[in-house]
């Protein structure tokens, strides 16, 4: 398996007891593995993958503890947590639990489990974090608007040949490419 390792030895200041960082898997190999995971999800359960759905339900769970009355006044939230409904009682929540575990264990195995901040060379840490927050907010908002994120719509709907998911996928790439030029300072 070949590897790509262009910008690796950057944040290596505090080298202590740590596993050596291993190179990433080749994109095609990773893609085949991801495709098999996606297929198994559909084959065994009938459901695909998801991420923002699990985050949504975790958030609603927290809201239900802090402000239960509020949940009962917003129909969108009521669907998930109204009455004695438990917002965590959904498969997509457990997909996210698994995703955290899988990511952390792979990161640990391959020497990539460590505090670090990845950013373009020309911006400060503060700018990077501000942009991460704004980008995250747009992602979260857009994912709920589109009823799914890259995992739940593009990957899952793409593999099952949903028209809406394919249109969505092109919209995501279009949105990114439309703005990329104007924010090139962030990454280059």
């Amino acid at each position: 398996m070949t590897a790509i390792s262009q910008d690796m030895p950057r944040m290596r200041a505090e080298t202590r007891v740590r596993r050596a960082e291993k190179p990433y898997v080749h994109p095609y190999a990773a893609g085949i593995a991801l495709g098999i995971v996606l297929f198994l999800a559909f084959f065994i359960t009938g459901n695909g993958l998801g991420a923002s759905g699990g985050m949504n339900r975790l958030l609603v769970f927290a809201e239900d503890i802090i402000a239960p009355g509020h949940i009962d006044r917003v129909p969108y939230l009521l669907d998930m947590a109204g009455g004695d409904r438990n917002p965590l009682d959904s498969w997509v929540v457990f997909i996210s639990v698994g995703t955290i575990l899988g990511g952390a264990i792979s990161g640990w195995q391959h020497g990539r489990l460590r505090f670090e901040l990845n950013k373009g060379p020309r911006i400060s840490n503060g700018t990077r974090l501000l942009m991460a927050f704004i980008g995250g907010a747009l992602m979260g908002y857009g994912a709920r608007l589109a009823r799914g994120c890259t995992s739940g719509q593009a990957l899952s709907g793409g593999a099952t040949l949903s028209v809406g998911s394919w249109v969505f996928m092109f919209a995501v790439f279009a949105g990114g490419y439309m703005v990329a030029y104007f924010v090139r300072r962030l990454w280059n």
Partner: peptide
């Protein structure tokens, strides 16, 4: 889906991730 996708595309390039 289209509008949500466009918003997410912008979020992707600003934030560097998807959910």
């Amino acid at each position: 889906g289209i509008v949500g996708g466009l918003v997410m595309g912008v979020g992707f390039i600003l934030g560097g991730f998807c959910p």
